[in-house]
């Protein structure tokens, strides 16, 4: 199997969509449910029923060389279509089909420029929580930063 190439550099619209997808992937199911209650959501139908499968995670020899297969990750995907025509997709680590479907709805809503700011606002709590978690972990790690000294042995 050939590793999945990252492809050409995505444009700013895609980069912004990726950021929202990453936020939804990191969020809990409850956080996505709360975000959707803050939005005016049209009915959504499944383009494809939520499904759990595998993605083979590839690493690189030496961290930056030829790819190799490290092992698989469980992934759940969902694809939906809103009653007003927009489509949304989600691929998340794990096996939570409900969560993936919620994220697909948020992806569809976000792609509508008129709704984008509302989606961002609805997800603000989850974004703030994720940022606080990251910051706390970074601070805890920083407290374990170590300065080793070599000690000359007094042999002469």
């Amino acid at each position: 199997m050939t590793p999945n190439p990252a492809g050409p550099e995505p444009g700013p619209e895609i980069v912004a969509r990726q950021a929202v997808m990453a936020l939804c992937a990191d969020a809990s199911r409850t956080e996505l449910e709360v975000a959707l209650t803050r939005l005016d959501v049209p009915a959504a139908e499944d383009l494809r029923a939520p499904e759990t499968g595998l993605v083979m995670a590839t690493g690189r020899i030496g961290g930056d060389g030829r790819p190799f297969h490290v092992g698989e990750v469980s992934v759940t995907r969902a694809a939906i279509r809103l009653a007003d025509g927009g489509t949304g997709f989600a691929y998340h680590l794990g096996r939570d089909r409900t969560k993936a479907r919620l994220a697909a709805i948020l992806d569809a809503l976000w792609q509508d420029p008129a709704r984008r700011a509302h989606v961002a606002a609805a997800l603000a709590d989850a974004a703030n929580r994720a940022e606080a978690d990251r910051r706390k972990a970074a601070r805890q790690t920083a407290a374990t930063r170590v300065e080793f000294l070599t000690v000359a042995r007094g042999e002469d």
Partner: peptide
């Protein structure tokens, strides 16, 4: 489980 594919190589 079905396999969807391979990931983009992990950026360690």
């Amino acid at each position: 489980l079905p396999r969807f594919g391979a990931s983009v190589p992990l950026e360690t």
